[in-house]
Every structure is written in structure tokens, then in C-alpha cells.
Design a protein around this nucleic acid. Structure first.
Lengths: 226, 226
DNA sequence: CGATTGTTTCGGCCTTGGCAGAAATGTCGC
DNA sequence: GCGACATTTCTGCCAAGGCCGAAACAATCG
């Protein structure tokens, strides 16, 4: 009668440890971080960090990239980020209803980074514009840039890394809007580009993205145009 | 520099324990279970179960209902179920791509119980029908039954418990379809009704719901009618 | 090639937390 | 009230796993 231990328990236990969870929280931004950075951020020595990071990699929660004498870690994929956000939603579900409305969280609902791309209202707007204008079209199941889309990309001056082995574009569920927004290499390139043009600025202490006045003038109309 | 422990770590650690995770897995169906049932299912003595259940309740993952000398437990809300499913997705992400297509998982994608209501393709179909026919209408932010909707309910003979303090109807995100389906007291009542009419049968060993031949004749056309 | 810096391995300490046995509390039916 | 049953509290035991110090390994730079 005794049931087998559910698989999700293993993942949960990897997330549960204080040190590991701190590391994961830092990596939620989507960036790569070195083992040393992660160690000091989590408040442990380098040896301890090594062990924990090895476990996270072994459990396939993290990707590793060796670069010289450094080792860089990042979340393995966006499913992980989703799971972490789902847990956060539960963790803050009493505070969220009040705080979500308040000043601090408003920008998060408006626009935030989700694993390297734009989420929130702005992310949804962007995604819908791309589909509406047929810059993105679904091609046997996957999303692909149309020629009009490629033109638009070059006009605004975004650069999509050609080396990228990750998918170009795919829908990503948004937990505040409950609708899809854009993820993938294209999404990252666009976010980079918007930041370079000073349309968006990343908050240092949170995942919020702030729309600058310039962004309000130049970016918003573009996303809302029909 | 050492960061505070992220809130989600606490939730994860509640989920991580083998005994507690087994209990949660059992409760994923949405039903209430007594402390004793949960103890034997998890393979521990009653005392051990008490401690674990107390922690889950304290962490607001579970609801309790005292009934005589029994105590019944259930998942506190669907956010919890979502978090568990998100973790499961990560836990099975290598197997999922293959197995999802296979026979065993097909019925899950088609229709399954999600915390007491119908999810999967059928759940999405049902939700869209209700909106399309304006049986459900959004009323200052919440979903409410229209008079046409109330008529339809009484025609098919579903009974909505009047005592229920839970919301009547609200959208619930579907992770296989990535679209909303119906949740709430109404959703439960409909599932009950469909089962009574033998349109759907619940699988005993999984969360799958099987469409009976009768359901195919009588239920499907109703959901697909425009 | 040595010095420096980043990461890993080893060994031992220590805390955390889950478990069972026994006994107490509470609830029901008679 | 009394016995049967479900749940809880108390206590002590035990194992798992995280941490640090020290030393080893690896890569870079002068």
C-alpha cells in the first residue's frame, strides 16, 4: 500500500535547501553566474557551493558552461523558472493579494524579466503585436520569423545571435496575465535592443523593467499599432 | 551580501519530505482524506502522520475539516496543485516528451481531474462553450451565471451546493493546453453531474477521465455546439 | 616557470528533523 | 459511563546531509 515517493519530491528537495534556494533565486534572472559569485551571494564558502552546484547540475536544474578557470551556471530551462515562480506564488499568496496592487509590485505586473525576456503586460502586448502583424508565423508547429518580421527586426536594430542553439521563438505562459508572451532567442534579442535604446531599464533589486519616457513615446505605439 | 532565504524555499521543503510528498500526491486529486488514510498511504504510523500534516496545515498547503473523531485534509487551493504540477513537469521532463504521446498519457491530455474539476482538452472545450453561449458572463471582474446559464444548468440537472463558500466560477490555467478552463463550485458540480450521467468515468489509478460512448454521443455535441 | 586566483576533494564535526513506542485526549455508539 | 477507535503529545533514538578547514588541482598571467 505504501506508495512510491513521487518524483516531484526530489526536485523540491533540491530547491528546499537554504543555500541552493538562494542560488536559484539569483539565477531566476536568467543570467549565468560563476561558482564564486554564487558562493558569496549564498553566504557560504567556495567548497560548500561546489557541492550544492554539483547537485543542482546533477538534478538537471542548472546548466554549466566552463570558461577558462571559471565555471558559469544558469537555470537549465524555463520550466524550472516556472516551477520556482509557482512556488513563489504559493509562498506569497497571503501577501500577494495586497502587495500586488501596491506600488512595489505594480511595475512587476507591468513588465518584468522572465528568464531573460519580457513578461508582464508589456510582454503580452509585444507577443500579440508580432502575431497580429504576422512578423511571426507558426510553421509546422514552431514559430518562425516571416520576411516582414526580419525586416522589422533589422529596422529596430535588434541582433539575434546566430550561434544560439536555443529555439528562436516560442510562447511562454505568463502567470500574472495568464496569457502567452514571447520567449526564446528572439525575445532576448528584443529585450537587449530595447534596453540599448533606453526604452526599458532593468531594476537592480528586482526583476521589474521600467518603461522610460522615451520608451513610452517610441516603443509603446509600436507595440500597440494595428 | 548574504541574501535572505527566499520564501519559496520553505514551501519546497514542505513538499520535499518523502512522507509529506506522498500525502500531497494523494491529495492532488482534490479529495479530502482522513489522517489515518494518509498515514497508511504514506507508509508511516499515525503519530508520524499527525506531525507532518500539522506542518502542512501550518504552512497553509492543506485545509482541515474536523468531522467527529476524524480529521479530513485536502489541498488548500489550486495554486498548490499548480505548484505541484509545475514541479512534476520538471521532474519528468525527460520522460514527458516521449511518454506524453504514448497511450498512458493520452487520456490525461484529453481530460483529467484538476483539483475536482475537468481539465485537459475537454475542460477547455467546456469553458469556451460556456463563454460562447454567454452562460457565463464576467461581472465586475468575476464570472457569474447568466439566466440562460442557470436554465442550462437545471436542464442538464447539475446541482450547485448553496453552502459552498468557494467562488462559483473562475478561470484556471491548464498546463497541457496552456489555456484557461473552468474551476470553482460550478466546475465541480458539472463534473459530478457528468459522472452521474455516465458521460465521464474517473480512472481509479490516475487522474484521467474517460469519455464513455454515451458521453461521446450526448456530452461532446453539447460542448461543441455553437 | 612560479605566483595568483578559481574550483574541487577529503575528513570530520555538528545540526536538523523524521520516526516509533507508550500513553493521553477526544469522540462516538451503546 | 464504558469500550472501541481516531488522533495527539511526549521522549529518546537515529540517519541524512550541510558546513568548514586544509590541501590538492587547474588555468591564467607576468
Amino acid at each position: 500500500m505504501t506508495a512510491p515517493e513521487p518524483r516531484f519530491a526530489r526536485i523540491a528537495s533540491l530547491i528546499a535547501d537554504p543555500t541552493r534556494s538562494r542560488m536559484l533565486a539569483l539565477l531566476l534572472s536568467g543570467e549565468y553566474r560563476s561558482a564564486g559569485e554564487l558562493a558569496t551571494f549564498a553566504g557560504v564558502t567556495a567548497q560548500a557551493a561546489t557541492t550544492q552546484l554539483a547537485q543542482l547540475v546533477d538534478g538537471a536544474l542548472l546548466n554549466v558552461r566552463k570558461q577558462g578557470r571559471h565555471k558559469y551556471f544558469a537555470l537549465a530551462d524555463s520550466e524550472i523558472a516556472h516551477a520556482l515562480e509557482a512556488l513563489s506564488l504559493v509562498a506569497e499568496r497571503d501577501s500577494v493579494s495586497t502587495r500586488w496592487q501596491l506600488a512595489g509590485f505594480r511595475p512587476l505586473k507591468c513588465a518584468r524579466r522572465c528568464y531573460g525576456h519580457i513578461a508582464g503586460e508589456l510582454g503580452v502586448k509585444q507577443f500579440e503585436m508580432l502575431l497580429r502583424k504576422r512578423y511571426l508565423e507558426s510553421e509546422n508547429g514552431a514559430l518562425a520569423l516571416s520576411s516582414a518580421g526580419r525586416d522589422w527586426i533589422s529596422v529596430i536594430g535588434a541582433e539575434i545571435p546566430t550561434t544560439s542553439r536555443t529555439r528562436l521563438a516560442y510562447p511562454c505562459m505568463d502567470w500574472s496575465e495568464r496569457r502567452d508572451h514571447l520567449a526564446g532567442a528572439l525575445a532576448r534579442a528584443l529585450l537587449d535592443c530595447y534596453q540599448k535604446k533606453d526604452w526599458l531599464r532593468a531594476d537592480k533589486s528586482s526583476r521589474a523593467l521600467h518603461l522610460t519616457p522615451r520608451g513610452e513615446r517610441e516603443l509603446l505605439p509600436m507595440l500597440e499599432a494595428s
